[in-house]
Design a protein around this nucleic acid. Structure first.
Lengths: 346, 346
DNA sequence: AATTGGCACTCCAGTCATGCGAGTGCCAGC
DNA sequence: GCTGGCACTCGCATGACTGGAGTGCCAATT
């Protein structure tokens, strides 16, 4: 239906519209792009593109604006990701380099990304469901309070304070600790949760004297594992939404809400389908189900020592997809490499 | 200068303006409030109020709007805090009741507050500078990695993963742990930091064999203490800013930025001066230095087992001060009580 | 068959004039 | 010190008009 040149016209419209924020007309296209044909010809192509619902005219006689479908075609078939400039690569490196635990690295990642793109940046924590428990530690604080610590091989540490109602002597504590160790250490989080559930149903005869207290400890461990299983996000740059306010027809309220909720964004990020390079985009009304019909998300998978997660940006539908895709990809790669290094140094 | 009735007129103007978002004229005042005098009389009073810069007319002939100075006089002399309704009290209770560690309680507090006021809610962590260290725990994870945990008597737990480069045998580890214990346990965070600084200058002869590794551990502890010393915030409800967008003349960008930065808000909250009831307000241009000239903060002190901190809301200058003050105070009181209870149960 | 120049047409955005209404300031009188 | 009255000032909405940008279509050209 749409000719090859027609697609080039679509590309030109998307590029110019993202550039200027103004509907783009046939004359503007022949001026800014060397098509070698006249404005009337472009007009004919534009009529076809409009038939295909790739572009629309806001008013009877004004330039054209890409539809969500138009952006989709652009992203899938027309966008060429320019590699980042050396300066941008240096910026990523200077942001991300330096040691620190997982939390630290992800916070720095998200800052780098919001800085580079001027959008809201989002980083998913690596999915911990597959992570393995490496340590369970119990620290008595006196007065019946117990600090319960769980560590996984993905480098995440979780601690929880719980009131168990009594203090144990060292031997009992060591026994409980050992029991939890054999129950959990070396096993994936998901499996650990199952084993704990079983244990809570058929009470163990191991420490009947302190049964209630140990149950309390086990419950605390279970809560921590459960927290690992839920995915988590780090975000930055929400203020950018206000800066590009004009890009959102309606209010930015739903966006800020989604950012605060996190759950919505987690679902959205989770449901996106990546291409063969690990890149994915969800455009405009495709996000209607999440109340984000005026926004787009562009993301790239990254590899946190075996478990996959995503890093992406959230912005107006009218965003610079090629640049954002390229940036997100570069950051994801750098992040993957950093986590590998970190792992090998251990 | 301004008569008693003049102040009542100011109160009426503030109330009506907050209600209607429209400049309020003399006629509207005599209609809505039973002053028992005519509109012309009110007009004379309004002229005086305008001389005092407590109100202004946006245009030559439109109703009046309170100035920041007007709001200040209103808050200081005219506002009567209505006690909350039983329903609202119940809402606070249902939000806050239930156990959990400090993080948990503060998150629930901030949610309750944003829910009740429809503003951005902010809760300061109790200042940890005066808190005492109760435990220092070291957990070896193998491969030269060490988990360093510090606990204070205010219930806060901090953990940090650090790479020390070697594994200790149990005896050495116990010795280091004991050393840190005598150095820090039972002492305030601030003092602990000093002692560590001294120790790092004049190296201890205690464990020369592992000097570098122990230094690394000590450094990690110092970082954690430093983190305690910095105050911290929990916030919720930033999406509310977008809902009342119309209340902000300019963009909400600086507000969102301050929320993301936290540092700005920490300084602002810290510098506010409370009255004898622990209530404080910072209005409009008084916040210019923080880039928040169109916003107000209303806060109440609360008592976290001895160390004072604040809970407040951030919103447009044109906010309902009496209601927000009353809500903030009620939440602060409830929070104080909860933390006391929690403490006594330990 | 594709491209082009030309032309009539549509609609937006800005400008100006007009009228209305709300609200003020001031003054003379009570 | 309060009040009613009155002239005055603006803001705002309305409507008419214009210029300009951009389209759609058609007949002519390659």
């Amino acid at each position: 239906m749409v000719s090859e040149r027609g697609l080039q016209v679509l590309r030109a419209i998307v590029q110019d519209y993202v550039d200027t924020r103004e509907p783009v007309g046939s004359k503007a296209i022949v001026e800014r792009h060397a098509f070698g044909v006249s404005a009337a010809t472009i007009r004919n192509d534009m009529a076809l593109l409009e038939d295909e619902e790739l572009i629309v005219a806001p008013h009877t006689s004004s330039g054209r604006v890409p539809t969500d479908k138009g952006y989709r075609v652009f992203v899938d078939h027309l966008a060429e990701l320019r590699p980042l400039s050396p300066g941008q690569r240096a910026a990523i490196a200077s942001f991300l380099d330096g040691s620190g635990d997982l939390d630290d690295v992800l916070v720095r990642t998200v800052r780098a990304l919001t800085q580079l793109t001027g959008q809201v940046a989002i980083v998913q924590y690596p999915s911990f469901a597959r992570a393995n428990v490496t340590h369970v530690e119990l620290v008595q604080l006196g007065g019946g309070r117990m600090l319960v610590i769980v560590v996984t091989d993905t480098g995440r540490v979780s601690q929880r304070l719980t009131f168990v109602g009594e203090d144990f002597d060292d031997a009992d504590l060591a026994r409980i600790r050992a029991g939890l160790g054999t129950l959990l250490v070396g096993r994936p989080v998901r499996e650990g949760l199952q084993r704990i559930a079983e244990r809570l149903e058929g009470p163990d005869a191991q420490a009947p004297a302190h049964e209630r207290a140990t149950d309390e400890i086990v419950r605390a461990v279970a809560e921590e594992l459960e927290e690992f299983r839920q995915d988590k996000l780090v975000m930055a740059g929400s203020a950018n939404l206000a800066r590009r306010e004009s890009d959102f027809r309606g209010s930015i309220y739903p966006l800020l809400e989604a950012i605060e909720e996190q759950v919505t964004l987690l679902r959205l990020m989770g449901e996106m389908v990546a291409d063969e390079h690990g890149l994915s985009a969800s455009i405009g009304r495709e996000n209607d189900a999440f109340g984000l019909g005026e926004a787009s998300v562009v993301a790239s998978d990254y590899d946190a020592t075996g478990s996959l997660a995503r890093v992406g940006v959230l912005g107006p539908t009218r965003m610079d997809y090629p640049t954002n895709l390229a940036t997100v990809r570069a950051v994801a790669r750098y992040l993957t490499r950093m986590l590998e290094q970190d792992d090998s140094s251990r």
